[in-house]
Design a protein around this nucleic acid. Structure first.
Lengths: 190, 190
DNA sequence: CTGTAAATATGCACTGGATGCAATATGATC
DNA sequence: GATCATATTGCATCCAGTGCATATTTACAG
């Protein structure tokens, strides 16, 4: 790997680390991009060459987690039902999510559809939805609509459960178990 | 109703009308709050006394639609299963949503959990999730966690389906039917 | 080692959303 | 009509995000 590439990764990581630390310390809203950039030792302008939005510095993590989910889907066991396969994939993602200490990283800010202008393309933040759904279509041969509905339902169930679980002060382990269960129920019926 | 109250409603409605028209004409992003306020004949600052955020001028509609959903839940038929009840409630909301011409109004920007800072309260935009879940708990006596998971799954399924349906250029009627179906499947199993 | 081209980083100006505050206007009340 | 509460407004300010021009750094050829 070239020096250039190494430096880029280094800067990117420094920004993510600084952001994570500052968000933990002072909360997301209270942290400015200026602070993150300063803590990472680069200019504010440079932050935006690495991340489109302030929130992207978080989502990038989830992108990597979605990789795990996609991988799990692609490793489908012969004959495995789509619902069960997706549930397993979510378990992978959730586990990794918590390992990284980003409690709601996977679920937070999950959707951001363009509300008006039908011609608007789906927001980047929907990339995870799209990737998982596409993998599911490829692995199981189900139709797109169903795949999107399944992934949407799973994310929604996880999100809703995480919200209530955290608000009730559960531990991370409990929350993890609850979200996993909710995800399965969303896919196989309540 | 007092003159004061009437004027307030009038101004509020004028802002919502202006926003809806401008959003339709030029898209959400391209429309500035300045334009909305000007079109409604008030100052920019006044816009923010009526709506917290630019997006609220839309969400207000969806709040009213959630009213319909809550009402449907509260009118539970004796012995009706929670999943079926919630599915019916979503049908009400979706139908009203499309009637109002806000294609993705119900689903767009559905979740916005506070990602970090565990002590942060759930974002207002989750109000609809909370209201529906609370109604479901009250009407059926199921536990909170399950209720949140169900509502989350339903919203997620609708959201995911709407995204793909719109991106494929379906008509509103088709999208409505697809989302309704997806919602049911999320609640009763894929 | 040096000069050059490409990629990166930075500063600066500017737009747009959002908030706080103080001043002003308007409806309610007596 | 005087007075009080409430709305409205302008203004200053903060922060996210973008465009553009400039400077700095890396890659690479000679």
């Amino acid at each position: 790997m070239s020096l250039r590439e190494r430096k880029k990764r280094q800067t990117r990581q420094a920004l993510m680390d600084a952001a994570g630390r500052l968000f933990d310390e002072q909360g997301y809203e209270a942290t400015t991009v200026d602070q993150i950039a300063a803590a990472a030792g680069v200019s504010t302008r440079t932050f935006f060459t690495y991340f489109r939005h302030k929130a992207d510095v978080i989502r990038t993590n989830s992108v990597e987690r979605v990789d795990a989910g996609v991988a799990a889907i692609l490793a489908r066991r012969p004959g495995e039902a789509p619902a069960e396969l997706l549930a397993r994939a979510f378990d992978e993602m959730l586990a990794e999510s918590w390992e990284m200490g980003l409690t709601a990283g996977l679920v937070g800010d999950a959707y951001k559809l363009p509300i008006f202008s039908p011609q608007a393309t789906i927001d980047r933040s929907n990339a995870r939805l799209e990737r998982l759904a596409a993998a599911l279509v490829g692995a199981c041969g189900i139709d797109r609509m169903t795949a999107y509905a399944m992934v949407g339902a799973a994310i929604g169930a996880v999100s809703g459960t995480a919200a209530v679980s955290m608000s009730e002060g559960r531990t991370d382990e409990e929350t993890l178990a609850e979200t996993s269960r909710a995800c399965r129920r969303a896919l196989t019926g309540f």
